[in-house]
């Protein structure tokens, strides 16, 4: 079973590799936000979820529960929010 710290580290590594060709110079840590800090658009978010599923070798992680709150798509996501979601979900199970 993956430890919480492993999940967050692997997530950050995945995001670092993900944006490696984008010219993004920001350091990525748990406070980094996808849209405001890394200039993600909606397609990038979908692609990131594919990359995360590939990293953790699991599909259908239920990202819709992370993206839709109170009937609306959220405006942004932080690394911490994704990490906490993964820790609470099937990755940690």
């Amino acid at each position: 079973m993956l430890q919480s710290v492993d999940i967050e580290n692997r997530l950050i590594t995945t995001i670092q590799e993900f944006v490696s060709d984008w010219g993004v110079t920001s350091e990525i840590d748990s406070t980094t936000t996808l849209v405001a800090d890394l200039e993600f658009d909606s397609i990038d978010i979908i692609q990131l979820f594919v990359a995360i599923e590939t990293t953790f070798e699991k599909r259908n992680l239920g990202f819709q529960d992370l993206l839709i709150k109170d009937g609306r798509y959220v405006d942004d996501l932080s690394v911490r929010e994704i990490s906490e979601f993964l820790k609470a979900g099937p990755i940690a199970a």
């Binding site: 490696s20 060709d21 990038d44 692609q47």
Partner: peptide
């Protein structure tokens, strides 16, 4: 064709943004 399946050769998927081509 993204994420790309393993083949005996080369594969570049279509309908992918430049940001996601490499991987």
């Amino acid at each position: 064709m993204a994420p790309p399946p393993e083949v005996n050769g080369t594969l570049i998927p279509g309908f992918v943004s430049w940001k996601h081509l490499r991987r």
